[in-house]
Nucleic acid binder design. Structure first.
Lengths: 141, 141
DNA sequence: ATTTAGTTTTGTAATCATTACAACATTAAA
DNA sequence: TTTAATGTTGTAATGATTACAAAACTAAAT
């Protein structure tokens, strides 16, 4: 598995302590964390870490294509260090974001907008209630 | 073309003045407006209209499946009165949201998450720069 | 008509994720 | 070692959205 530093360099990003930590967190934690979750996890190890740095870094990584930005949760942005084309499922009960692999890898490319000069991003989102939450609901009744 | 009132009733929503106005605006204006754009357009005709009503109404319409909620623009939510399955393209330069029809209507359903108990929503989003903005950029140089 | 209960709308005040910005710190180049 | 460029920090705004309670409206029942 590639290191966070190698990842950053591959996308032309200079690997500072903070950037490496954010990239590493996203590679190790496939949970689609929010900026705040990343901040909370990293501030333990990096004293004087600023939330602004987390936001700056996430923007930078996104600009360089090193991560995905998910606007699947209306209340906050989630981030994904796994950039291979795949879809996401957001459970509106537990708030978790799940990965979905799709069968037709060409679908997204085949349906790209005709009037798009440049494409930076393509995302397929599902929203609903996951089995686990539906089960918990049933038991509670 | 169905009227806004008919639309609301079809989804089991009581057609108040405000709800009808919002539904009608979304049916007539296929521009994917924001809550604020809807508010600005309607306050001219409906005195004492409240922004809260716009938000309440949009939530209600969404809950009943009468409209789509688009989280394609990171800075604000857009709404779509056209609920037939289709994708969207957001130009990050001009901020416009464009409709995209896709070729394989079954794709979304075929790739639905395995661990989804209930699905309320499925959206395919593209982001980039539209031809118009790219052209304007070129001319400016 | 009038009362009553239920529903809908309104206005104001929060909330909270994100951004703006300027000072400070660090790194790279000269 | 100076200088310039880049990166980080902290605080203060921003602004879309929500919370909430009062007021207005609607429909049904008396």
């Amino acid at each position: 598995m590639k290191t966070a530093v190698e990842h950053l360099e591959q996308y032309g990003i200079r690997p500072s302590i903070q950037r490496t930590a954010v990239m590493n967190y996203l590679l190790k934690n496939r949970t689609h964390p929010t900026a705040d979750e990343i901040y909370s996890a990293l501030e333990k190890d990096i004293p004087r870490l600023s939330r602004t740095t987390i936001y700056n870094t996430l923007h930078l990584l996104y600009e360089h294509g090193a991560i995905l930005v998910l606007n699947i949760d209306p209340s906050t942005t989630h981030f994904d260090g796994y950039t291979h084309p795949h879809a996401h499922f957001y459970c509106t009960k537990c708030g978790k974001v799940h990965d979905i692999e799709f069968d037709d890898a060409q679908f997204i490319e085949r349906n790209r907008p005709r009037n798009a000069h440049t494409l930076t991003d393509a995302q397929l989102y599902y929203r609903g209630i996951c089995d686990k939450c539906a089960e918990a609901e049933k038991v509670a009744q």
